[in-house]
């Protein structure tokens, strides 16, 4: 097992008075793909969003416990959330490119980081698009609106946009749930490529996808982390009854 990148200790999350996550403990390895699976409403997306403090945006959310990234508690008092989010990028369920050109979408992150030099920006844009395996498809129309692309292409633009900020961890919230099988395959292939450089955490409701793409899998149920292990183990020999039921399709 690689080094631990994210270490979560006794994480509780409440929406108002309703608990959404209960005493979650997990250690996520670096430069590997970790999948979160579970029935909808089990807290897997909520948990993902605690890792870059996206839940801060929602009023009335209360979080207790520790989330350590590189041994820094990201819920500590002195944490810079803006930089945290640069370090921990996020891909959303619905592709959400800005209503700007492809180029401007990718350059958004570097620009807010103060990069104004045109050549540097060009370089970053190309590199990010290449990394997201979409350069060849869009290199001729970088200044067209990103919204003119297909859903799968848009999602890869969003991935490229995140890569351009140079994160260390990429969170993916059901990134392929709205895509056709071919686009999904491309995204999965891309995930496989990216794990050489990035720690990837992916939420999915598609168990085959989890099995195909991830090294480790966590099963969530009713706000609790039921089981976390190597993906092969989870799928071939789960230790908990609930995991087995879910994987064999008995519920969810």
């Amino acid at each position: 097992m690689n080094d631990i990148k994210v270490h979560v200790k006794d994480l509780d999350l409440h929406y108002g008075v309703n608990p959404a996550l209960k005493k979650v403990n997990i250690m996520i390895p670096e430069k590997m793909v970790t999948a979160f699976i579970g029935p909808s409403g089990c807290g897997k997306s909520t948990f993902l969003r605690t890792l870059n403090r996206m839940n801060d945006l929602i009023e009335n959310v209360k979080i207790d416990g520790e989330v350590r990234i590189d041994d820094i508690d990201i819920y500590g008092k002195e944490i810079d959330v803006v930089n945290l989010r640069k370090k921990v990028g996020m891909i959303f369920q619905k592709s959400n490119p800005f209503a700007k050109s492809i180029y401007e979408n990718i350059a958004f992150g570097p620009k807010i980081n103060g990069i104004t030099h045109k050549d540097t920006l060009d370089e970053i844009v190309e590199k990010s698009l290449r990394q997201a395996a979409i350069w060849d498809e869009v290199k001729g129309r970088l200044y067209n609106s990103a919204l003119s692309l297909s859903g799968g292409q848009q999602q890869r633009i969003c991935i490229a946009r995140t890569l351009a900020v140079n994160p260390e961890i990429i969170l993916m919230d059901e990134p392929a749930s709205a895509l056709d099988p071919i686009s999904t395959a491309k995204i999965e292939e891309l995930i496989h490529e990216l794990k050489q450089d990035y720690t990837i955490i992916i939420v999915t409701h598609n168990m085959q996808q989890a099995a195909r793409t991830s090294d480790y899998t966590a099963f969530f149920y009713l706000g609790e982390l039921v089981e976390f292990n190597k993906t092969e183990t989870i799928f071939s020999n789960p230790s908990k009854r609930q995991t087995e039921d879910y994987i064999s399709g008995r519920f969810g």
């Binding site: 002195e78 944490i79 810079d80 640069k86 140079n166 450089d197």
Partner: peptide
């Protein structure tokens, strides 16, 4: 790609920055 995988930014999250 691997070679050029850039670490141009170094994000320090441990201290709140005043913007």
């Amino acid at each position: 790609l691997k070679k050029t995988s850039p670490k141009t930014f170094n994000y320090d999250i441990s201290k709140k920055r005043f913007r």
